[in-house]
């Protein structure tokens, strides 16, 4: 085992301090060390988008960042978006428009779409499809996801 590094970071507004091996991926750190299993691990090479988190507010693949690199940074995971009793409007829209079936890809879609809709409150269908082009869903055929994003945009505008 290589040396351990001190890691201090903020996840979903809470400060954490842990010791980590440099080879630990941020995706695994979130799931295993912090118990935040909402971030899903799919392909582990940056293609599927399931592990997308917000890194200092920008969507990024947590499987392509070492945990140690998050030292001093701010991470938002799907757990930071809403709670079961108080879903984020984007989450509500996914629920209402059937934007998921198995749900494996959903956290990655939500974290990708959150900054997208904040920057572009009234996107066209083409812009929506472009925005989700880095996230794979094997259940829905994307149509219901696109519908959910349109509904979410409506909800977030009001």
């Amino acid at each position: 085992m290589s040396d351990l590094f001190n890691l201090s970071l903020t996840v979903n507004g809470a400060a954490y301090e842990r010791q980590v091996e440099p080879r630990l991926l941020l995706s695994d750190f979130l799931r295993q060390n912090l118990g935040l299993t909402g971030t899903h691990v799919g392909c582990e090479h940056g293609v599927c988008g399931a592990c997308t988190i917000l890194f200092d507010g920008e969507p990024a693949r947590s499987c392509l960042i070492f945990a140690v690199q998050a030292h001093g940074h701010e991470v938002l995971t799907v757990e930071g978006m809403g709670t079961i009793d108080n879903l984020h409007p984007l989450q509500e829209a996914f629920w209402e428009a059937h934007g998921l079936q198995c749900g494996f890809c959903t956290p990655g879609f939500l974290t990708t779409l959150l900054p997208f809709l904040e920057e572009n409150p009234d996107p066209s269908e083409e812009e929506i499809r472009e925005a989700i082009s880095g996230n794979l869903c094997r259940c829905t055929g994307y149509q219901h996801i696109v519908d959910a994003v349109k509904l979410a945009a409506e909800k977030m505008r009001t």
Partner: peptide
């Protein structure tokens, strides 16, 4: 170039 999630890093 790639996707936004890649371009951010």
């Amino acid at each position: 170039i790639a996707t936004r999630q890649i371009r951010s890093r």
